[in-house]
């Protein structure tokens, strides 16, 4: 079959792309999307290892990760909306209230 290391390398590439994307992008929504990519890369790794170890525990964990990511996306987007209402901007560099 397909050597599992390929999947893992793919997972690594996706993760690093997500990380780079987070630092490059300046608007909040897209940054959030890059975080979702990173989560997915982790999911891929989990499934790969589940297949390699022969147990289904990895898949159950992925199940939970997807669920939690959904909840997190809902709340996170709500917060982004609120920030937009207050500050009228979604540029992440304009949100500096926690400075110092």
């Amino acid at each position: 079959m397909i050597p599992l290391s390929y999947f893992l390398i793919l997972s690594i590439i996706l993760f690093v792309l997500g990380a780079i994307g987070f630092f490059i992008k300046r608007d909040l929504i897209t940054q959030f999307m890059t975080v979702e990519i990173m989560l997915n890369a982790a999911n891929l790794a989990f499934i790969t290892f589940a297949k390699s170890a022969g147990s289904l525990d990895g898949q159950v964990i992925v199940f939970f990760i997807i669920t939690v990511a959904a909840a997190e996306a809902a709340v996170g987007l709500a917060i982004i909306l609120l920030v937009y209402r207050q500050k009228k901007t979604i540029k992440s560099e304009d949100i500096k209230l926690m400075k110092g």
Partner: peptide
């Protein structure tokens, strides 16, 4: 140390990474 606390999410995320 207070120079690290810029208030920008990106910087915090960088430190995480």
């Amino acid at each position: 140390l207070s120079y690290i606390q810029t208030g920008l999410i990106k910087d915090y995320a960088l430190i995480f990474l």
